[in-house]
């Protein structure tokens, strides 16, 4: 649907960069606008990848933790509840963190996950 979410975010960024920033003389405020514009640019480029990357990372974490894949589409078949998936992902990361801190960071499975996860980390 148009405008897409990316187009809306980029439009908001243009307001900041082209309209607001030139009117500001204070360097501190200019710096904060630049950070905000950068964050919007990042969001526009990344938002569509967030859910697929989350699901991929959940599956990888389940594997490294020796767990069966959970059903992530509970309410609507084929549609992942992002908030629930994010919460589940957090719990898996907490479990892995505990395992690493208890000394399993040198296991081949954990090392393989960490190496693969570099591509999903943004």
């Amino acid at each position: 649907m148009r405008p897409t979410l990316s187009e809306q975010i980029i439009g908001a960024r243009r307001v900041l960069v082209e309209l607001a920033a030139p009117e500001v003389s204070d360097s501190y405020t200019q710096e904060q606008i630049a950070f905000a514009a950068s964050a919007l640019e990042h969001a526009a480029a990344r938002w569509s990848e967030v859910l697929p990357d989350l699901v991929t990372d959940i599956r990888a974490l389940e594997e490294v933790l020796g767990m069966e894949p959970a059903v992530l589409e509970e309410a609507v078949p084929g549609v992942v509840d992002y908030e629930a998936a994010d919460e589940y992902h957090r719990s898996l990361r907490a479990q892995l963190t505990d395992e690493i801190m208890s000394g399993s960071e040198q296991s081949p499975a954990v090392r393989a996950y960490l190496a693969d996860s570099t591509e999903r980390l943004r």
């Binding site: 950070f35 950068s38 964050a39 090392r111 190496a115 570099t118 980390l121």
Partner: peptide, 24 residues
């Protein structure tokens, strides 16, 4: 703070690269 921060993802990627030979 009004400063919009992104996460530490890029730093963690770099840290893994710095210790990469142990990851195989």
């Amino acid at each position: 703070t009004l400063r919009v921060w992104l996460g530490a993802g890029q730093l963690t990627k770099l840290l893994l690269a710095q210790t990469a030979e142990e990851l195989g």
